[in-house]
């Protein structure tokens, strides 16, 4: 893993996020058709169209989420970028790192993914790297610990 070069999340994360977003958006897209059906005013066609459009838009959004998320192990700071509608970037100096957590929820475990949470003394720091392969998460954690140094950093 080289320095100063943007890294994407694991390809498996792309699939997971596309499925998750497609399910959510598909459910939202199905709402108008379902309401029409309940009202007894026809609507199977509208339900189907809404479902398909929602799933397609969700899949596209899930892909965009993946494509927009990147992290860079810079010379002095960890840089994170993400966001489709609101683009966010964050810079966390290595010497400010207080704590590094690797978290794996049940779905992430099933998908073979992990997230790495970098914490500083500020609660507002935006320091979560989503969608990492567990091996990469462990590697980055060690790299960050090496870079973080030994100061108390407050």
């Amino acid at each position: 893993m080289s320095e100063d070069e943007p890294h994407r999340p694991d390809p498996r994360a792309r699939g997971l996020w596309m499925v998750a977003a497609a399910l959510t958006w598909g459910a939202i897209g199905a709402v108008p058709g379902a309401l029409l059906l309940l009202a007894g005013d026809g609507g199977p066609a509208i339900l189907a169209i809404g479902l398909v459009l929602g799933i397609a838009a969700g899949a596209a959004f899930g892909h965009a989420l993946w494509a927009r998320r990147a992290w860079v192990l810079g010379a002095t700071a960890l840089e994170l970028r993400h966001g489709v509608i609101v683009r966010r970037s964050a810079w966390i100096p290595y010497y400010r790192i207080q704590q590094i957590d690797v978290e794996r929820g049940p779905i992430e475990r099933m998908a073979g993914l992990a997230q790495l949470v970098v914490r500083t003394a500020a609660a507002t720091t935006d320091g979560t790297i989503y969608g990492l392969a567990p091996v990469d998460a462990a590697f980055i954690r060690q790299r960050l610990l090496d870079l973080a140094g030994v100061d108390d950093a407050v």
Binding site: G83, I85, V86, R87, S89, I92, P93, T120, T125
Partner: peptide, 10 residues
């Protein structure tokens, strides 16, 4: 400064 961020909406 602990960390810095930028955000840009549409």
């Amino acid at each position: 400064v602990q960390s810095s961020r930028t955000t840009a909406s549409v």
